[in-house]
Amino acid sequence: MSNDYQKISQDGLWTNNVALVQLLGLCPLLAVTGTFINGLGLGLATLLTLVLSNACVSAIRHWVRPEIRIPVFVLIIASIVTIIEMLMHAWVPGLYTILGIFIPLIVTNCSIIARAEAFAAKNPILPSVIDGFMMGIGFLLILILLGGLRELVGSGTLFDHSELMFGEVAKDWTLSFADNYRGFLLAILPPGAFIGLGLLIAGKNYIDLKKANVQTVSIQPATDQLTQ
């Protein structure tokens, strides 16, 4: 069983990463990753949605007839996202204002219904929750990585506006890397998001390729021994 969980985790974080491999949810991914904190905010909201929707879908999987499963999934996801949106509006208003339209748009993030349909509808609650969590973390990591990169290159800072999320204590968490940095516009504007994501995908493929090479090399001597 623990092997299963390991595979689920590896799938969500790396082999089947929502953003880098499935290429789902690109609209919010590209739009909000102007800063680290924006990425973190949307990432956490998406993560929470994924976990909750996977749990609900898995819990009701025996009662829902196949012909109405998609409308039911959509209903569940929409309710969860609306509730999260209201809670964010009430408790983290600053972040809510910045993320604005992209919170309700989590509903349209294909990765959520994809996980409901492909995994949660066929598996018990615990594995489904873990799957939702790992997929969410995988998405979150890419959001903050891309957000951090674009913020660093585009405005020369990191963790700017942390106070929107963590309150007044976080006011001076902002790291500034260069005085009088004029900023690199391209990184902040939409093209920067596409280029950044492209580089991340390329990076992942490169690492995978290297790993695959190492594996074939290490298999070689073994086969040699066999033939001897």
Binding site: W63, V64, R65, I68, P71, V72, L75, I76, A78, S79, T82, I83, M86, L87
Partner: peptide
């Protein structure tokens, strides 16, 4: 079944 889910979903949203 579909109505039931709609009612539960709507109920939770209005509660929040």
């Amino acid at each position: 079944i579909l109505t039931l889910f709609a009612v539960i979903g709507g109920g939770l949203v209005s509660l929040t």
